[in-house]
Design a protein around this nucleic acid. Structure first.
Lengths: 270, 270
DNA sequence: GACTGATGTTTCATATGGTGGAACCGACTT
DNA sequence: AAGTCGGTTCCACCATATGAAACATCAGTC
């Protein structure tokens, strides 16, 4: 259990994969030297591996000579909508939240003027919300919607604010006050605001350029009312870990001084 | 120099990359056996390589056991809009068209109710169109727009059809007649319809699920009027090759019987 | 237009890491 | 229980990947 597990017989592929990983996670071109340094590979090895990866379309050189994700990644991105991919990546986090709260968990994004749910994990309780996937709800009475409003992902509503229940926030002033509060606490709530007896809590998820979507839970007010802050914090924490996943590089090469002198290839283990 | 070039010292990585390639291009999960068969690798080797690729997030197993593109691809797709990626892949084709016609080449997609240009290659002539990237033009007087209408990518216009010049198609009947004609010939034209003296020709590009965007050229009517059909055919042909790139798998493993007996690893050359 | 330094690439002897056949395993059929 | 399919693990062998060092290449500099 040292730093690098002495994996079973695939050094070359592992190393190549590490290079691809670095290149794909970085959002701007990565120089040869940087790759060589960060991975700690000999320059010759780096060169050979990168040549192979380029030949096979996994990486590509941009005009300036740096390496960027290759055509195969472009192809994949060209053929698949981004949100389902975000949903895929978020799944483990949603599941975790589901396990810790027992409630139905949602992943919501802005589309046009409303929130749509692109991922969901079912409640373990019998009484729970329906499948909201692809259904859009008025954002001002949804916790996800409020988060997206609060962080500028969703344009503030221009029309009238529909009154769904008598707890619904219907005035523009009340709404913007609440949005400010949300930016303060880090999470949003919607208690009996969309439908009487239905509550929801949500927190923002950031991508590389700020907030891009929100995760939250929903369930009967009766079950949630005493746990609002607890769940709110949980969501904030989990949202942060998801943000980290979607954000900057930093994964592997965090602490290792990794100063491979001369021929210190083997890491002790066997 | 048999079928496979005796690449310079990266067998393992090349093979692993071939696996990734197959998995990513296929749009549904690929079974272990299929991968092993198609690549012609020993089952043990396939297993080892796939294990490594899975460990490194380049592939992933779906619940049913098949292999699909891994989290790293999801991450890339999650962080990058699809259209710029399509534009990247299309670049070589656009350049080719630019070289063969000398005119400005465009890649247009539907966004909402209009066409937007997501890729462009400049004319070699001095007199040419401006940079249309991200500018949207009325679709009914654009050749790209007509193509997108004709193949159902862009919803037929509901409002009035703006008359930009006296050649603009302004009636719904005239438009649908023209769209039928476009489906017949395979390409669309817009001569002096957006602006007097400006002509354009365009053809549809298909992805895995039918037409997704269009490529076309534009330039002065004076230079284009005698070459309309010639250029139309060129566009259709190039669009087809781009469609192939964006479509189904089929690339490498075409003919090789690839029956590696015992230890016939070396392919003769050195 | 020769020095210098920084960045990549190619060469080559070496032993490490990858290879494939066969044994093995677990799940499903018959 | 015996047989088949789909996949993984073992292991002896040697082909393959490896890294040091030599070799290119280019951008400044004097």
């Amino acid at each position: 259990m040292g730093s690098a597990a002495p994996q079973g017989g695939t050094q070359a592929v592992d190393r190549a994969a590490a290079l691809v990983d670095l290149v794909v996670r970085a959002d701007d071109p990565v120089s040869f030297t940087e790759l060589s340094d960060v991975t700690g590979l000999a320059r010759s090895t780096t060169s050979r591996l990168l040549a192979a990866l380029e030949r096979t379309d996994l990486v590509e050189r941009d005009p300036s000579g740096g390496y960027v994700a290759g055509p195969l990644f472009a192809l994949h991105a060209a053929l698949h909508d981004p949100w389902p991919q975000v949903a895929r990546l978020a799944r483990p986090v949603l599941v975790e939240i589901g396990a810790r709260t027992g409630e139905t968990v949602h992943l919501g994004v802005a589309r046009g003027e409303t929130v749509v749910h692109v991922g969901q994990v079912e409640s373990t309780f019998l009484l729970s919300a329906r499948d909201w996937n692809e259904v859009d709800v008025p954002a001002h009475c949804s916790s996800l919607g409020k988060v997206l409003y609060a962080f500028g992902v969703l344009p503030l509503p221009s029309g009238r604010l529909e009154r769904r229940t008598d707890h619904t926030v219907c005035t523009r002033d009340a709404l913007s006050a609440e949005l400010a509060a949300i930016r303060g606490t880090g999470y949003a709530t919607a208690i009996d605001e969309l439908e009487t007896g239905l509550s929801a809590i949500a927190a923002p998820v950031a991508g590389k350029d700020g907030v891009i979507c929100a995760i939250g839970i929903s369930g009967p007010t009766a079950r949630l009312q005493d746990r609002v802050d607890h769940i709110g914090r949980l969501l904030v924490e989990q949202a942060a870990s998801l943000s980290a996943l979607l954000g900057r590089p930093t994964p592997r090469a965090a602490g290792h001084p990794r100063a491979r002198h001369s021929s210190t290839t083997k890491e002790g283990a066997a």
